[in-house]
Structures are given as structure tokens and as C-alpha cells.
């Protein structure tokens, strides 16, 4: 199946683009899709979204089809889904 990854902030700078289209096996989770999407961009990109154990960082905001998801229970993706990634930055 095919999904679209959209990037904001640091990820957009690192990727040098607004979005990617990636191909995945049917039934994968958002976490697997994010890992696959970050792979071409090296360790710096992976470190923005994941910690050393491979879990999604608490500061990462993930939207599927424009709706923020709860990272504690990442859903299974459907073909055509759009996953948006924005890593929150400290300061307030």
C-alpha cells in the first residue's frame, strides 16, 4: 500500500522536501511507517522522531488524515493515508 508522509519544522529542513510517498506492506502501524520514512534521511532524522529504544519521542506530534493521534496506541494504516509529523520545540 501507499501512504503520504508530510513534514514540518526540523524534519522538513532535514528532508529538504515537504512530503514523501512511501510504499509499505498492508496492515503496518504508523510507527513502522515513520521508521521507514526516516530511513533515507539518516540518524539525524531518526533522532528527531525516535529515542534510543526506537519509540516515538514524546515531543512528536503525529496526525493521520489531519487528526492528531495518541502515540501510546498508534493505529494501523490504510492505503492512501496521509501521516503528518511535527516535532514540538521547547519554549513558552
Amino acid at each position: 500500500m501507499q501512504v503520504t508522509m508530510r513534514y514540518f519544522g526540523q524534519l522538513r529542513h532535514l528532508a529538504g522536501r515537504d512530503e514523501d510517498t512511501i510504499h509499505l506492506e498492508t496492515g503496518v502501524t504508523a510507527l513502522s511507517a515513520i521508521r521507514a520514512a526516516m530511513a533515507p534521511y539518516g540518524e539525524a532524522a531518526a533522532l528527531i522522531v525516535m529515542d534510543a529504544s526506537g519509540a516515538l519521542r514524546p515531543s512528536l506530534m503525529v496526525l493521520i488524515n489531519d487528526a492528531p493521534i495518541d502515540k501510546e496506541t498508534p493505529p494501523t494504516l490504510q492505503s492512501g493515508d496521509i501521516i503528518t509529523l511535527l516535532c514540538a520545540i521547547s519554549g513558552g
Binding site: G9, S59, M61, A67, A88, I89, S90, G91, G92
Partner: peptide, 30 residues
């Protein structure tokens, strides 16, 4: 909020509870 993880937590908790309401978030202002 100040902390990045708290920003994301609020978005997740609020949007899950109130999917029809808007939230205005700030990130990158230092």
C-alpha cells in the same frame, strides 16, 4: 507550555477528547 513533550501531550489529550474543537499551539519562538 514550555516543555516540548507537554505540548504534544496536550494536543493528543485535547484532540482525542474534543475532535471538533480547535487548539492553537506554539512551537519555535526562542
Amino acid at each position: 507550555f514550555d516543555r516540548a513533550d507537554q505540548k504534544a501531550l496536550l494536543v493528543e489529550a485535547f484532540c482525542r477528547a474534543f475532535p471538533a474543537k480547535s487548539i492553537v499551539v506554539a512551537t519555535g519562538l526562542a
